[in-house]
Design a protein around this nucleic acid. Structure first.
Lengths: 151, 151
DNA sequence: CTCAGATGGACAACCTGGTTGACCATATAC
DNA sequence: GTATATGGTCAACCAGGTTGTCCATCTGAG
């Protein structure tokens, strides 16, 4: 009888993502980071300990100009600092400020909290199966940031 | 040992969605609908047999103006027709053209084909568990189109 | 029947996040 | 030393969304 049709998959993926991200942003706003959008979080995650605009663009899968623009707004939000690199005067390293690192920590714990809620709702087996499945079908995508170093 | 960390969930959801949609669009482009973007597909699905701009906005979770803009581009693409409603001269019904319906059919079969590929890669159990899990956590979201009438 | 209010649609101005193209300063390779 | 590659920035543009305003039309209460 196929209780959930395959055709619903794109909608479900989008909707789940949206709910997850909305929940995290609501929590972040409560914690004193009201203006954070999905792009900002992804970019900060992608930056990690620090990288250049070009690298950020590659990790996010966007042009270096788009990455630089995002970095500028993150800088204005005080989450990021551009600092010169001594061995190459062209480069500017994007490094998270203490506020940026705090935001990252809060965001990580908000994601974990929301996932814990999912686990309560559907059980560990379902969530684990979903993670396993998605990590197969998401592989190969040159999508935004490989997140291998999410802390 | 937690082979896939909970923190990867947002990335996996996005990446899976992106891969899925990219694959479908590549197929659509091959089938003679090169310019179709994710928004267009979602909007066409939301329109279904036909609705007004206001309804479309509600189904997509966007303002009526945004919905009308999208409808205009769909009209220019020849996927959609605006036709007057005799019982209310204010309304204009958005109805798919034959090309629009063809695109919907092709898009549906492309989605099913891609899902079939997923099923080959990870097995039916994983995909079914994912569908079941996501339909729980996606619920309640006022996300785009309830897709209850995807054909 | 009429008229106030609700509703559908359109237009304009604006924002965000992305694109491409051009350009300059600096590194690097030959 | 000089050609070329690379990192960063600026400018123009686009898509898709927002809000505010406005008009035409429908609807319901007198």
């Amino acid at each position: 009888m196929d209780p959930v049709d395959d055709l619903a998959m794109p909608f479900l993926l989008m909707s789940a993502f949206r709910n997850l991200v909305d929940a995290v942003h609501a929590q972040l706003a409560d914690d004193g980071f009201p203006g954070v959008r999905a792009t900002h979080g992804f970019a900060m995650q992608a930056i990690g300990a620090g990288c250049t605009s070009v690298e950020l663009g590659e990790r996010l899968g966007v042009s270096k100009q788009a990455a630089a623009k995002t970095a500028s707004t993150l800088e204005e939000m005080g989450l990021l600092r551009r600092e010169p690199v001594e061995r190459d005067a062209r480069q500017k390293l994007l490094v998270p400020t203490p506020a940026g690192r705090r935001m990252l920590r809060l965001s990580a714990s908000a994601f974990r909290a929301e996932l814990a809620r999912w686990r309560e709702d559907v059980g560990d087996a379902g969530v684990d199966a979903t993670l396993a499945t998605l990590s197969v079908v998401a592989a190969g995508g040159r999508g935004p940031t490989d997140l291998s170093d999410w802390t």
